[in-house]
Design a protein around this nucleic acid. Structure first.
Lengths: 170, 170
DNA sequence: TATTGTTATACTCTATAACTATA
DNA sequence: TATAGTTATAGAGTATAACAATA
């Protein structure tokens, strides 16, 4: 991976330069624009890779994978919290749970204390699947951060956290 | 997880710690995982803000905005190149162009040299709209990168470019 | 009356494949 | 024949609103 990664990066930089040139004369903040744009490009690139290499073969969507992961890490939770944690609308979550429920990966249970609530949790099959899948996903994450030191990765997280809090707050 | 009074960034860090604690004992690369996950969170947070503050009021989708921006920066181009530049499928681009064409923001013209090709370009109204909208979008980008120095922003772009090339390569 | 989850509608975008008209 | 754009289909996800059961 280390032999041909220089050329594409140069290409990206050239594209950014071209955009600057096109917009020269306008008083824009290009540093900010490029940082934000690169966040978007990186996010789609990551998702495309994950779908192609892991998710498609398991017939799992990005949303479905996220859901299994959240339930694996945090345990059973009610549908609303799960939707919030996965970043999807509650109506969407109903459909997602139904889909994975049919495949026997998750299960619904009425909350006995508040019978409006539905608790969603992993089945054994669901636990097995995510426990097999996540280590492979993590390997992909490692491959994607190839060339970044642990310190670089921490720095990246720090910078992104700031943007997330800026976006959520304000 | 629960309602707390911590600063938002502290809250994000706490969540990451919780995930680590939950997965302790497994040999995962948490630095890589958090960096990748934060890319995703940041991208959605940015999009949500842009849609809420700029795009919805203009009845523009994220994709439509991207398209106007690309045409504004690069000028008229054929449908295939436009689709590639916007990161959408060519079938999707047909619909997007039709939508914005009906609103009089872009126009189609057959390429006289190769009559299979369709050249898509901004109309005057489209140019006016993006010329009014982008400066406001850039202000949002500036707000989102608040607290990051120019050097921080460059560093962020550098780190993200590496991930983009890692993902695109291979 | 307010909330949880569900359902329904309409829309954006994706992937794939078939189709047309050009080349 | 190969390519560019279009069209069609099925699926994922969005927002919104209405609704039933429960609080």
């Amino acid at each position: 991976m280390a032999e041909n990664d220089q050329a594409p990066t140069e290409e990206l930089l050239q594209q950014e330069q071209d955009i600057r040139a096109r917009l020269s004369g306008e008083a824009f903040d290009f540093e900010a624009a490029q940082a934000i744009q690169n966040i978007y490009r990186a996010a789609s690139a990551v998702r495309v890779r994950a779908e192609r290499e892991l998710l498609n073969e398991q017939n799992l969507t990005w949303g479905g994978f996220t859901m299994l992961w959240v339930l694996w890490v945090w345990g059973t939770m009610d549908s609303s919290s799960l939707a919030a944690e996965c970043g999807v609308a509650k109506g969407t979550m109903t459909g997602m749970v139904t889909t994975l429920e049919k495949r026997g990966l998750v299960e619904r249970n009425r909350d006995s204390d508040d019978r409006r609530r539905v608790e969603v949790g992993l089945t054994t099959a669901g636990t097995d699947l995510i426990a097999e899948l996540y280590p492979r996903f993590n390997k992909l994450e490692i491959a994607l951060t190839d060339g970044l030191s642990a310190k670089d990765q921490q720095q990246l997280s720090t910078l992104l956290r700031r943007i997330i809090t800026n976006a959520d707050g304000l």
